[in-house]
Write a protein that binds this DNA or RNA. Structure first.
Lengths: 290, 290
DNA sequence: TTGTGAACGGAAATTTTGTTCCATAGAACG
DNA sequence: CGTTCTATGGAACAAAATTTCCGTTCACAA
């Protein structure tokens, strides 16, 4: 190995490097190069032995290949593909990115918090980008169906979840849905939820640590046979387990303060999804009348 | 391990099995279950040792967890997640995937309500990115100073602005600031604001069309000599003109519905900016005492 | 309080994986 | 035709991972 080059840092870079050097490679190395280009997924998550067998070469040849592109070993090359696999779907990088981000915030803490806003923008952007990862279109559609199908929507959410719940209640009302906001004014929360019927729907919003009132509301609704739509940070949270449909939101966390932008975005998508469906049905009805 | 069940064969099956059995698991096993549900990607491609460290358990506990779900070992369980990761990506090459992604976003504008979520994510991302353009670091710093300097914060905001105001009130309170939320319960909004004094601060949140109550509150505060911090969509809005400091937010508008994610982000930056400054002063005070 | 059983953490043991080394085959050049 | 240099395959080695095992802790019941 006469090469002491610097290794590519992304899967795309490696791809380009392979293409550039392909003609200059030996026969066996070309064979590996083809496999690497054709099956990046295999590269990403199978072991060397498996890759070697599938591509018909020796494990040592793969190590040689990696080294000829400047890597320390084949493992280092694999890491590239694993990272790429995740970021390709904008997915798994999440924890990694959040960790990096928190570190950046820690560093800037010394600077006096002046660029706080842009740091928040970045953190919330990441959380937003990852939202579709935990909430599929199917989940959202199911949630919209629940809202459409029910007679009256009850919305509950306290403490940190209160703004989200308030938004849902307000804008569902605006969208023409009968909505009751279980706001607990005068301590009437239990009585309010006690009125729920099987043809209604309870939308519950809660994050760790799950507020007692909200958990009670969910249980009460379930007991009374009403469907429940939960918006929460975990699929096994107390309000998610009894729920008919759960929408999971992972917010960014900065200095022990968790954000709400992504939840806000989700709540909006839900409401507008409903408004859109409702208006479509209205159109259909009108057309039939003529 | 009294279980000799058959193991799940797909990641989804496992997910369902975990949810079903979650309550019957021991504390530690629940902890692992949570991690498995929340971070399937990590599960797919990190090693046991790394997963153990990140989730705060012992590697052996993970093996126990896997076995309790009928697997031979943790590796077998990992295979499930790896397969799932691949199937999500189809067998396409790299560039194809990227192309598909952008196409999906483009199309969603035209399509029904299915890809609504990604449309929202995109819109709100743009709004977030634009936030630093209308709110400078200097503005934010000035706003934080106002909050620091005052005796009691009054927060007002109704209708669409209500969730933002609610969030501000709640989290400023959490951050140790005396805060009154002018929520207008029992129609007492005017009386509440009537109590404001020059050493207090009114934070007003309002967007077009500006709510009468909020405009009144701002005017009342100004008359009584109290500083006003406005969060609004225009620098010339009725609540911005009399304000001491104004933070301007331009929200994204999607299908005629204006968003709130950027406002949420801004509110958060404000609160945490304050919390940060407050804790720094606290530190300084403590250090002086010794 | 004490006894019993399950759950847990940690370290040891084992298996798997990745890497290195070396003998050999093959090509290039003299 | 012989020498030399490079590339290759396979085995040996080293590292790392996973799994097993066992002493201890914890919770619950007597």
């Amino acid at each position: 190995m006469t090469d002491a080059q610097i290794p590519p840092t992304t899967a795309e870079e490696l791809r380009a490097a392979i293409l550039a050097r392909y003609d200059g490679l030996s026969k066996r190395l070309q064979q590996i190069a083809r496999y690497v280009l054709d099956e990046p997924n295999e590269l990403a998550l199978e072991t060397l032995a498996v890759i070697a067998e599938r591509s018909g070469v020796q494990p040592s040849a793969i190590v040689r290949f990696a080294k000829s592109f400047g890597f320390d070993g084949a493992s280092q090359m694999q890491r590239l593909f694993r990272d790429g696999l995740l970021s390709g779907h904008a997915a798994l990088g999440y924890s990694e990115r959040v960790r990096n981000f928190s570190r950046a915030v820690d560093n800037s803490a010394a600077s006096g918090g002046a660029e706080l806003l842009s740091e928040f923008v970045e953190g919330n952007t990441i959380a937003l980008q990852n939202l579709p990862q935990t909430v599929s279109d199917a989940d959202l559609t199911a949630a919209v169906r629940l809202v459409e199908a029910c007679d009256t929507v009850f919305v509950v959410g306290v403490r940190r979840a209160f703004p989200i719940a308030a938004y849902l209640a307000y804008s569902l009302q605006q969208a023409g849905k009968r909505t009751t906001f279980v706001d607990g004014v005068a301590g009437l929360a239990r009585q309010q939820v006690g009125m729920i019927r099987p043809e209604d729907l309870l939308i519950a919003v809660s994050y760790q640590p799950y507020a007692e009132e909200t958990v009670h509301a969910v249980e009460a609704a379930a007991t009374r046979g009403a469907p429940v739509l939960s918006i929460s940070d975990s699929l096994v949270s107390p309000i998610a387990k009894p729920a008919t449909v759960t929408l999971q939101v992972r917010e960014s966390e900065i200095r022990a303060f968790r954000s709400l932008s992504a939840s806000m975005c989700l709540a909006q998508a839900l409401v507008i999804g409903f408004a859109f469906e409702a208006s479509r049905k209205e159109d259909a009805k009108n057309r039939r009348k003529r």
